[in-house]
């Protein structure tokens, strides 16, 4: 004699890559219904946010491209030695704290993985939202914020690591103004760190959006863009690291 059926718990489904969790269908000319339970308004907002992200990425890239070009040009410039009154190179290759920077790189790449988990969790969550609305069906606890928090913590750890690397550079005698090479190390790493802090602010905003019970669609967009930005920051760091390590 079954009396009360227990409430069914559905666990997060394993949506495939490129499935509906990953990539929303492109709306037809802006007015069509995207299907999958997501409103055309959401698709349009998501697409708009993505276009905006790409434009931002172009701008940030231009900033680093011009730093790179200045770096490469300055590296090979002869300069006047005031003691001997002769032209010579004044570029002293920086003795980078490589092992520390490798640890930082691992932290940042790791955070890139964790934010990808967050991005997929929120996408699944959104796909499940209609199911969750059926009475008697509880969908498992949401883990998006957990991954977002881990990512933010790893980001902070990376910045602390960069700070330690600066201290190590100081110990080795490379100050901001000691040599053009060290100036560039500080400029590139600091500019990257400032941009990463922007990413951390975005993560905190995403967590707050969840705590404030914002609509899942808005949260999805925020997390989506934050994730793409975070991946971009990780790639940018690898580029900066490679530039400093190999073009000396």
């Amino acid at each position: 004699m079954a009396t009360l059926s227990p409430s069914v718990t559905i666990h997060d489904p394993l949506t495939g890559r490129g499935g509906r969790g990953d990539r929303p269908p492109i709306s037809d000319g802006g007015n069509g219904n995207g299907g999958n339970g997501s409103s055309p308004d959401f698709i349009r907002r998501l697409r708009r946010a993505r276009v905006g992200f790409f434009i931002l990425a172009v701008w940030v890239s231009m900033l680093f491209i011009s730093f790179t070009s200045a770096y490469v040009v300055r590296k090979d410039l002869p300069s006047l030695n005031q003691n001997t009154n002769q032209l010579g190179k004044d570029w002293i290759p920086v003795d980078l704290p490589v092992s520390l920077l490798v640890v930082n790189t691992v932290l940042l790449v790791g955070s890139s993985v964790t934010i990808e988990f967050a991005r997929r969790k929120v996408a699944q969550r959104m796909a499940l939202a209609p199911v969750g609305a059926i009475p008697g069906i509880a969908i498992g606890r949401e883990k998006t914020n957990l991954w977002l928090g881990i990512t933010a913590a790893l980001g902070v750890a990376f910045i602390i690591g960069q700070w330690l690397a600066w201290g190590e550079l100081n110990n080795r005698g490379f100050y901001v103004a000691s040599n053009p090479s060290s100036s560039f190390v500080y400029v590139l790493t600091a500019t990257h760190a400032v941009h990463l802090m922007g990413g951390i602010v975005a993560l905190i905003y995403a967590i707050c959006a969840s705590l404030l019970r914002k609509a899942i669609e808005s949260r999805r967009i925020v997390i989506e863009i934050a994730a793409w930005y975070w991946h971009f920051m990780a790639a940018l760091w690898i580029y900066v690291f490679a530039l400093l390590a190999f073009v000396r």
């Binding site: 940030v60 900033l63 100036s183």
Partner: peptide, 23 residues
């Protein structure tokens, strides 16, 4: 979009030259 990022980077370097003593 493409031009102002370059100006900003130049401006940052100029500020450092003026105030931190870089070259």
């Amino acid at each position: 979009l493409l031009a102002f990022g370059v100006l900003l980077s130049a401006g940052i370097l100029l500020l450092l030259d003026r105030n931190i003593g870089t070259s």
